[in-house]
Write a protein that binds this DNA or RNA. Structure first.
Lengths: 206, 206
DNA sequence: TCTGTTCTAGCACGGTCGTGCGAGAAAGTG
DNA sequence: CACTTTCTCGCACGACCGTGCTAGAACAGA
């Protein structure tokens, strides 16, 4: 009856393998993310991965959850100080694939979202992210129109024009989609120019 | 040496099977569009389909081409008369999934586009459609800003602000993406309200 | 009728997949 | 050292897939 020796950090291992899933998904699509392919990418054997994942569903779901957690952590780490319109611009810029790392995340993310349409296992997480992003965009619209979120309670969503929320939300998703669809052909300056133009109209109009 | 008897219309048959592909893709995703599944959906046997398609690649590519042809035909059939801003609004409304038929088309379309990112066989057609839509959106922006396209030669694209083109293009793709992502939860009125708001800003600002 | 062509149906092969399993290596404790 | 637990590896099974193939049905002309 020995005290349990912990040889490897399971959580860290699961995270590493999740990153391997992202790379495979980006390169070959979610269909190509077979257990064998991910094992090769992660430098493991298929049998070895079974000690950390219950199966392919657990593997892919974990990779998707890790992705949302990563994006969420980056958003939570943003500097909330400054005039409201400047904060709004900062958050928007964080949502765009302005560098390679976020481009890779966006490409993998859309693969998961695409599958969520026909696979229940991914749907709930996709819907939660969708609602979370919509709430964030609602705050961005409020910020752009000069509302200071520090003054309003977190529980209550700010009162804003829902048409403008959907307009900005769709614009952002469309920009990311275009960057994903044509990697390297949508420069960062274009993305920023478009959102700056949009935010300008939002500020002037509100 | 008989005169060749033509028992079935090959083109019509290929079209019917392509529609069966759409239904399977909508229901189970592009991964689920196996030759066997499409054969069942179309009421044929796998061996019988080989008389009309060279293989799975031909099958899926044909389904995607048929989809672009269908959308293109609908756009070509639009009434081009009226004041430019009204024509612009008419074209935009045609691009949105306002009824079940176009919703189904949009869902299948995004499945093909998603695969095009990692599968060369679909990439060329996806890129062509992307460029075609971008050119169309450029014309819409010109129309919204009062330019009468009848006065400008077809060969030369209208001179418009490319930032506005990308902004409207991304907005439209984002709206369609949201409708695809959450079927039934994005009502037609919302889609129209958003594009009307956007076109209004485009007209006033230009 | 007979003949040649088109079309249909389904089987069989080779390949990939997810997954369960067991043997052996590695590491920590007595 | 022995002993237990953790970890790694690769094989094997059954399922599904794309595809080639063959035998027969359906049909148009002679």
């Amino acid at each position: 009856m020995c005290p349990v020796p912990k040889l490897v950090d399971h959580e860290a291992r699961r995270r590493d393998v999740a990153h391997a899933v992202w790379r495979v998904v980006r390169r070959e699509g979610l269909d190509g993310a077979s257990v064998r392919a991910v094992a090769v990418e992660a430098g493991l054997s298929t049998g070895s991965m079974r000690h950390y994942f219950d199966g392919q569903a657990d593997l892919q779901r974990t990779a998707m959850e890790e992705l949302t957690a990563r994006v969420g952590a980056r958003l939570a780490g943003l500097d909330p100080s400054g005039r409201p319109p400047e904060v709004a611009r900062r958050i928007v810029a964080e949502l765009l694939p302005l560098d390679d790392e976020r481009q890779a995340e966006a490409e993998a993310w859309f693969a998961f979202v695409a599958r969520a349409r026909t696979d229940e296992a991914f749907r709930e997480l996709a819907n939660r992210s969708y609602e979370g992003l919509r709430a964030l965009v609602r705050q961005i619209v409020a910020l752009a129109q000069g509302v200071d979120l520090e003054m309003t309670p977190d529980a209550e969503p700010p009162e804003v024009d829902e048409v403008e929320v959907e307009r900005l939300f769709a614009l952002l998703d469309g920009l990311v989609l275009h960057a994903v669809q044509r990697p390297g052909l949508v420069p960062a300056e274009t993305l920023l120019a478009v959102v700056d133009r949009h935010l300008k109209g939002l500020i002037d109009g509100g």
